[in-house]
Amino acid sequence: MTRPTPDSVVASPATRPGPAAVTRKRSPARGAGLRTPRWVGWLFVAPALAVYAVFVLRPIALTIQYSMYRWDGIGPSTWAGLGNYVKVFTDPDLFATILNAVKLIVFFSAIPVVLGLAIASTIRRIATSRLALVARTVLFLPQVIPLVAAGIAWSWLLSSSGLVNQLLTYVGLGGVARAWLGDFSTALPAVGVIGAWVLLGLCTILLLSGMSKIDPALYEAARMDGAGPLREFVSITVPSLRQEIGVCVTVTVIAALASFDIVYVSTQGGPGNATMVPGLEIYYLAFSERQVGMASALAVVLMVLVILVALPIQWLTRDRTS
C-alpha cells in the first residue's frame, strides 16, 4: 500500500506536534532532580501485571512443567523429560487430532471470511434499506447464542430425522440423507458447518465496520474510470480491509485450532476418532485418562501451533503504510 489514504495524511505523527515536543519544552524548567522516578510507572502497571502473572503466565509455566512429568493429578509424579512430546508426534491417534484441527480451518476460517466479504459488500450496497438491518441482525445472532445451545440445536437439525434430511428428502435427495454427525465421512465437515455458521456473523460485522471507513471518493473515482462492482471489490474493498481480514482470519483460525465446545456438544469426538480435536483430547487425557503430563504436553504443542499460525497472519496483514 503506497497510496496515501486520507487517514494516514491527517494522522501522520511527523506533521503534528506530539506530546514528546511538549515535554521537551517543559522539562528544563522543572530540573532533572524533580523528575518523577521511573519506578513510579511500575506502580501503575503492577496490579495488572500481578493478575497477568498469576492467572496467565503462571498456568502456562505450570503446564510446561507438568508436560515433563508422568502424573495422575493426585499422587506422586515421575520425571519424563520430553517423552510426552515424543508421544504427541508419534502416536497416530494424538497426531490425527492436530490434523483434524487443521482441516477445520477450512470451515471455521476460509468459509466465514470469504462468505463474510461477499455478504458484507452486498449489505453495504443496500445499507440504507431495512433489509440490511435485518440481515445484519440475523447473521450476528449466532454470536449471541451460547455455543452449547447452538451445538444442541445443530445436532437436532443434522440428526437422521432432522430438518436437514427432511428438506433433502422433500427435494428428492433422500438418497443423500444420513446421520450427518454419525457418519465417518461427514462428521468432521458437519462440525465444520456449525463452526462456519457461528463465525460467519462475527466476520461479516467486522468487515462491514471496516468497509464503513473506506473513503467513498475511492469508489467514485473507480466508477468514473469504468470499474464494475467486481473490480471495485477486488481493487478497493479487499485491499482496504487488509487489517480487518487479518483480525477475522486470526480469530477464526485460533477458533478452529482450539475448538472444543462445538465438538464436545455435537459429537464428543466420535464416530471413531473422526472429529477428535486437540482441545477435546487434552480434556479427555487430563480428566478421564488422568494423564496430566500427556495432556499438558499436547496443550503446549497446541499453544505453539496457534502462535506459529497466528504470527505470520499478523505479519502478512499488517498495515505497511504506517
Binding site: 500481578a50 498469576v54 503466565l57 503462571r58 512443567q65 495422575d72 499422587g75 506422586p76 496430566v292
Partner: peptide, 10 residues
C-alpha cells in the same frame, strides 16, 4: 511469581 509453582507436581 512463577517459581511458586516449582518442584515436582503432586
Amino acid at each position: 511469581t512463577l517459581a511458586a509453582g516449582c518442584g515436582a507436581p503432586g
